[in-house]
Amino acid sequence: MIDAIPSSTTATRSIALMYHAIGGPGSPDAAQDPHYTVEASRFATQLDALVRVAGGATSARDWLAAPSRAVVLTFDDGHASNHALAWPMLAERGLRADFFVNPGKVGEAGLASWAQLREMAAGGMSIQSHGWNHRYFTELDDRALREDLLRSRLAIEDHVGTAVTLLAPPGGRMRAELPAVARECGYTHVLGSEPGVLDGAASTRALPRMSVTAALDAATLERWIAGRGIARARLRYGVLGFAKRALGDRRYERLRGRLLGQGDVAR
């Protein structure tokens, strides 16, 4: 199925990619989910494709300030490989990205430290909020959610020294009102996990992201950049969403972990 992007809006519409850990020398096994861990050599090939096909890649922070056809790059969880491997490869190509971190977990085994995050921010990277400690927002009542969003934003701003305006809900778990609640807590945009095309005019709903797994091939990536194959990704996301709602988050995670041979992996 082909999802054509109207030519009149191509200049301000793009896609956002959602990465997690990067595998390879210097990448600790701790805090990795193998299903979402992209090997360094494959990641380098993907970055080169973005430069060749899309003209480059940037952070959501910068794209929202000046929408373009550049692909948006984001990373969730703050894995140590984001500093050790992803950042140097991005910097080598003059690219930028957002890194969504959990302040309550920064510096734990396998995760980047505050010093590393400050170094990345000084190098032009965007450090943003992934919630306080990766607890699913759907598990929090309204008061606890607001406390989580405020605590996370303020902690990152205090430790890194840059403004935090973007929020990515852990596991993509969110209720429909999250963008409105996030704005009340000082954020401007929420980036979700539902596949789709970015639209610079959208501000009242979660912005879509395409999930990058370990098996993503270059041909599929280039189709996404061209606006093709997105409907198929949305269909798969809808099926998985139904399973999560039917089973509940924790039962779904246990089943997913057994199927992938990883135990109980939260995602």
Rank of each mutant, 00 (worst) to 15 (best):
R13E: 14
R13I: 08
I15Y: 14
Y19N: 03
G23S: 10
G24K: 01
A30N: 13
A31D: 12
A31W: 11
A31K: 13
Y36A: 10
T37M: 14
R42Q: 12
T45Q: 09
A54H: 13
A54T: 09
T58I: 02
T58Q: 02
T58C: 03
A60T: 00
D62H: 09
D62K: 03
A66R: 10
V71S: 06
D76S: 04
A80T: 01
E92H: 06
G94A: 03
R96S: 01
N102Y: 13
P103M: 07
P103E: 07
P103S: 07
G104V: 10
G107A: 13
A109E: 15
W114H: 01
A122Y: 06
G123P: 01
Q128H: 12
H134D: 12
Y136S: 14
T138Q: 07
D141I: 05
D141W: 09
R146Q: 13
D148M: 11
L149V: 11
R153P: 04
V160H: 02
A163C: 00
V164G: 09
L167W: 08
P170W: 02
P170H: 06
G171Q: 04
L178H: 07
A180D: 09
H189N: 08
A202M: 12
V212I: 15
T213D: 08
L216D: 08
I225A: 10
R228S: 12
L240G: 13
L240T: 14
L240H: 15
L240W: 15
G248N: 08
E253P: 05
G257F: 08
G261N: 07
